[in-house]
């Protein structure tokens, strides 16, 4: 197969609202290949989830306009009819959601819910599907799954529910898994276990994973490549080591600096990025990060930078990435005014 698993090219997602059209995702481009985990990071409202929902075409299509291309195994998902999308969702591309507590239907047993997508996509009988549901639950590390499948969602814990969600999402062996903040609602130990499960299954099924998160710890743990998003755009993309070692975009640097260090000075205040994210209906003219950026010059305010590819494969959307590299030894470059 010559096509990569997923190519997102210049994706634009626009919502028509009462105030006018809002572009929630503005020209996002990235690739995901088999067996690869792409981390998508950014703060709330930067378009991470909308990107994911655009790939799955889950948004209300009456008020949403898409632009660009989403090529899944070479087929453009944005131009597929809804009936074809039904076969892709859950079967080819699956998704796990942030809030496992509310992601399961309270009136069905967990076995019924896992079996349902198996019955729909794989045309197995209910009995065989149940058998497979047990198998899936065992794979995700739920003890005595034969008993668990007859329980209702309210009878099991949050970590268990997330495992059930994973079992459900992977029951048809999809090629691509989109995990939308799968561990945000869980405590740290369960978080680690869930990430472990996702990683193991990724390897077993050789699937691509898009890990949407705002937790850089999660990224460091499971991702092979990272795309950093800000206000609906990818502003930096690199493999994990490069991104953590030499971030080139001021925003990425800011994000990394705002992680508390375990051996850091106690008296020292935590680093913050100044200002707030502008509203989507009031996007700055030039570089979107310019108003909050300490590197910003006249040019930044006037002209929007493009996503530059560096020789090492790192992509940065900043006019000054060369300058930033030089100042790498100045840790507080962003805060200095």
């Amino acid at each position: 197969m010559s096509h990569p698993l997923l190519e997102v090219k210049e994706l634009k997602t626009r919502f028509s609202t009462e105030k006018g059209t809002i572009t929630a995702v503005d020209g996002v481009t990235f690739n995901v290949d088999y067996g690869e985990t792409l981390g998508v990071v950014g703060e709330s409202g930067c378009g991470k989830s909308v990107t994911a929902e655009s790939i799955m075409r889950l948004l209300n299509e009456k008020s949403t306009k898409y632009g660009g291309e989403i090529l899944y195994k070479g087929r453009d998902l944005l131009s597929l009819p809804e009936s074809k999308m039904l076969d892709i969702r859950g079967n080819e591309i699956s998704m796990i959601f942030q809030d496992a507590m509310t992601s399961l239907n309270p009136v069905f047993t967990i076995g019924d819910q896992i079996a349902e997508s198996i019955v729909v996509h794989q045309k197995l009988s209910k009995k065989e599907a149940m058998k497979k549901a047990v198998e899936m639950l065992r794979v995700t590390g739920i003890p005595s799954p034969e008993k668990r499948i007859h329980e209702y969602p309210h009878e099991i814990s949050g970590g268990m529910r997330q495992r059930v969600m994973i079992a459900m999402a992977l029951s048809c062996q999809p090629s691509l898994l989109i995990a939308d903040e799968p561990t945000t609602a869980l405590d740290v130990t369960i978080q680690a276990q869930i990430l472990e499960v996702i990683n193991e299954l990724k390897e077993e099924l050789n699937m691509g994973v898009i890990m949407i998160t705002h937790d850089l710890g999660v990224v460091a743990e499971v991702c092979t490549r990272v795309a950093v998003m800000y206000l609906g755009q990818v502003i930096e993309e690199a493999d994990v080591d490069t991104l953590f070692d030499s971030p080139r975009h001021p925003y990425t640097r800011g994000l990394l600096q705002s992680i508390p260090k375990i051996n850091g000075d106690r008296e020292q205040k935590l680093h913050t990025i100044k200002g707030v994210v502008p509203a989507l209906d009031n996007v700055p003219k030039g570089c979107r990060f310019a108003p909050r950026c300490s590197f910003a010059t006249e040019k930044c305010l006037e002209e929007a930078p493009v996503l530059d590819e560096l020789p090492n494969g790192q992509k940065v959307r900043c006019w000054h990435h060369a300058r930033i590299k030089e100042r790498e030894d100045v840790p507080d470059a962003i805060e200095a005014t």
Binding site: L58, L86, G90, M95, F97, D99, T102, N105, F108, E116
Partner: peptide, 26 residues
Amino acid sequence: EQTYIEAMRAQGASSWRIIWRHILPN
């Protein structure tokens, strides 16, 4: 508007299935 309905859509459930199998019992 519940997440589990969106989750079912993400699992490839048709509108018909969502209305009758998932919204109705609730």
